[in-house]
Amino acid sequence: MKTRRTSHVLLSLLAYAVALVMFFPILWMLLTAFKTEQDAFSITPQLAFAPTLESFRTALEQGSGYWHYAFNSLFSAVVSTLAGLLLAVPAAYAMAFYPSRRTDFTLVWMVSTKFIPAVGVLIPIFLVYKNLRLLDNLWGLTALFTAMNLPLLVWMAYSYFKDIPRDIVEASAIDGAATVQTMWRVVLPLALPGLASAGLLALILAWNESFWSLTMTDHKAATLAVYIASFKSAEGLFWAKMSAASVLTVTPIVVLGWFAQRQMVRGLTFGAVK
């Protein structure tokens, strides 16, 4: 009994330690963001330092462009998520509640497009966008995010719809509801928590996306990913500012992820975990 108790305490301590190690780079970034550039760029890590908001001030000031990039990130993430849901929900609804012989094929096809790597379509999309003047265009980028997340959204929405008992949908039909009424008044309210978490995941993926942003935008439609990437060549002098900008970029999504973690898992496991 004694050894069990000891091992329990040790394992708990190990869990804390692991959590701390995993979180440490984020913590370090957070601390650095509150340092002066001198403290940030120091051979001996400064743990005791006078916190300053200076880096945040420079990161946010006029001319830093943060707000421009933040708007682009927010716009492309939110609009692509909403558009994705708007496209995915009706399709998933049709497949879940009115399956035909082609349903399985269509669903698998839609999901499988997720597994075309972005580089597989990069070149034609770049060239077509160039001709259509969609390069460095926020709508063009948003459409790409939509396409990127659509397969996942279809799958997640489908698995949430599948969980709604057929009986309830039939009861609603017998109660006099038309297809659209059933969808709005019965199915959507029931699937809403699931759809919301699917939307959150899409939002996170779009916000963090960098491949398309780096290749398809320059300045006008550039997102925070591009902004942060511009610190790539920053040597020493800008670590605090880079950290501050990173904190400003990462925090909203990490917090969102904290709250949505549980709900996201179920949709992502493709129904393997109930």
Binding site: V18, A19, L20, M22, F23, P25, I26, W28, M29, I204, W207, N208, S210, L224, A225, I228, A229, F231, K232, A234, M242, S243, S246, T249, V250, I253, V254, L256, G257, W258, Q261
Partner: peptide
Amino acid sequence: LAISPFFVMPVVTGLI
């Protein structure tokens, strides 16, 4: 805390 890195933007990960 342990799952937080998953939500960090990859570009930020790289730079940090």
